[in-house]
Structures are given as structure tokens and as C-alpha cells.
Simulated scan of single mutants.
Amino acid sequence: MKRVIASVTVATAALLVTAAPAQAAPAPADPVKALKSRLVAGQGVKFTELSTMKEEGKTEPYLKRTGSFQFGRAGIVASDISSKAATPVDPRIGQHNGMFAPGRTIRIGTTSYSQGGTYRDKMPSGKSWYKSPDGMTGDVAGWFSQLVNVAEPATLATLLKGAKQTRDTYTGTTTFGRLAKVSPWFRATLPLRSSDKTVVTFKLTVDRNRLPRQLTTSFPVTGIFDSAGWEGKTLSAETRYTGWGSRVSIKAPPANKVTTKLEDKDGLP
């Protein structure tokens, strides 16, 4: 009888061990390692964004953007970003009207396809996309949006180095110069700028998987334009990331809608 009981006990214990649910691997404590673990071909992340302009203590909404990044093993291989004015814009505002006009940029590798925005009145008949090898990530609207891309491991590492951490939030500063050294995204977004010494203040919050959830940055606009008209103005951008690991497939526009020539009616900005 004792042998029978012992056999039943051993068998039951073995069954319980086999039936026990597998424990999920703990999320990496380091956000950079967590990000690298999500760099899977065919997957990516989505984001929404609002930039604001501050002058003389008054803050105004500036631009809204939505988009997605597609990953490969080495990092971002494609992006698709749409932008528009955050508030209704007077069509008579002149030189900035093109920036505030709804626009979209698809970037695959280093080739950009731009629609609307500053190109809205420049397209030849029948064409709606302007193709630019080594093009920008978001047309001129990109200059006044989120310049810092924490979906790049090297960029994320640069921010976290020396940052102050409080639970899931990191705060600190970096500069245009540091970003230019490590970030292909930054260089393509802002190919020309007035000063690499421009200081960027940031606040980054990560989720329970240590992946970026929200990034807020701010910097003086004179870092882009060395002009008296921009003195005292500060641009801030708040970006929220969702769907890490979701399937993302970004493709070039139809070839018959693409042009590499513009009808420069009024002159590009």
C-alpha cells in the first residue's frame, strides 16, 4: 500500500511540474537592451506627436504628427510620417504656410518620398510624390518637430548616459552636436543648423518593459536659425510611442505618381 501511495505521489508531482505555466522572461532593466530586443525585421512602433512654440511665457500648439517606424536587425529601415498644423492656420501667413500644410513623408533607407507640405504646389501634372535620395525624414515640418529618435539604440544610449533617473523617468540634457555624431535620424532631419552647441533638454518615460513610452524635448529655435526673428523662442515636442513589436510594412508610393523634378513656381523655402 505504501508503495502505491508513493507512486501516486511521485506521479502527481510530476504532472504538476509539467502542467505549471511557463514563466515569462523578465524584461531587461536597461532600456537600450530592451530596445535592441525589439529590433526585429518586419516589426516596429507607432507614435503620435505634438510640438509647441513658447515665446515670452506664452505657449502655442504648433504641429501635430503621426507616424511609424519599421525595423530591421540593425535598426530603423523605414518610416512613414504625416504632419499638419496643430491649430487652424491663416492661409495668408506667407513663408510658413508650406510647413503647416498637411504633408507626408515616406522614407525607405535613405530615400524620401514627400507629398504635400512645401511640395504641394510644385508637382508636375499627374504626380503627387517628390523623390529625393538622401532626403529628409519629414520635409521642413521635421525641423519643428521631434528631432530626437529614441528608437535608435545609439541615440537612446546617449540620452541615458549621465541622465537622472527617478523610477521610470530619465531627465537630462544633450546637444545638437552629440546627436549629430550618433544619430543618422537627426542628421537627416536637420541637415543644416546654426549651432551644434544648442542644448536639448529631455524627459523620457519608459514602460514596464523598459521601452520608451513618452519623450519630451525642448531647445531654442536659434539653434536652427541664427536670426533675430527667432530670438527668445523655444520649441518643445512631446512624442508618445505605442505598439512596440507590432507588424509594420512601409512601401514606396506607386512609381507612376513619383517625380524627381519640381515646377518651382514660387521658389522653395
Rank of each mutant, 00 (worst) to 15 (best):
V10W: 02
S195V: 06
T87V: 15
G98Y: 11
A252H: 09
Y130L: 08
A78N: 08
D80V: 05
V248D: 06
R38Y: 08
F219I: 04
N256F: 01
V182G: 09
T110A: 13
A6N: 01
A252I: 08
V8N: 04
G135W: 10
R193I: 10
N97D: 02
M123D: 02
R247G: 06
R208P: 01
W129V: 03
D80A: 04
D266A: 14
L190A: 13
K203A: 12
L235H: 02
T234G: 05
G75M: 05
T48V: 12
K33E: 14
T239N: 08
A6L: 13
K36C: 02
K2P: 00
T239W: 00
A86Q: 10
I76R: 09
T189H: 01
K203H: 02
T155Q: 03
F176H: 07
V77P: 04
S112N: 07
L50H: 07
A22Q: 12
R107Q: 15
H96K: 00
T166M: 03
A151L: 05
Q165G: 03
S125F: 04
M123Y: 04
A74D: 14
T59S: 14
D207Q: 06
Q115S: 14
D80W: 09
V148H: 08
N256Q: 12
V140H: 10
G223R: 02
A151P: 01
D90M: 03
Y62F: 15
A22G: 13
T155V: 02
L160Q: 07
L147Y: 02
S183V: 09
L268V: 11
T52Q: 15
L179T: 08
G116L: 06
S114F: 00
V89C: 02
A14G: 13
K265V: 10
P220V: 10
R240D: 06
T171C: 02
R104H: 15
V8P: 07
L39A: 09
M136K: 15
M99R: 03
A20G: 04
L190W: 01
T105K: 10
A34I: 10
R38G: 01
T110K: 15
S194M: 04
G94D: 10
S195Q: 06
I93Q: 13
S112M: 05
L39F: 03
S145L: 09
K233C: 04
E49I: 04
V140Y: 14
I81C: 05
T105I: 09
Q115H: 14
A13W: 00
I250F: 08
P153D: 07
F71L: 08
G126F: 05
K161Q: 12
F47I: 15
G44E: 08
W143F: 15
A86S: 11
F202A: 12
T12M: 13
K261Y: 00
K84S: 12
E231A: 15
S194I: 07
K233V: 09
V77A: 09
A11D: 03
V40N: 06
G177H: 05
A237G: 04
V199E: 12
T259V: 03
A13V: 14
L147G: 13
V248L: 11
D30S: 11
V221L: 15
M136T: 14
V10E: 01
T222K: 08
E56Y: 06
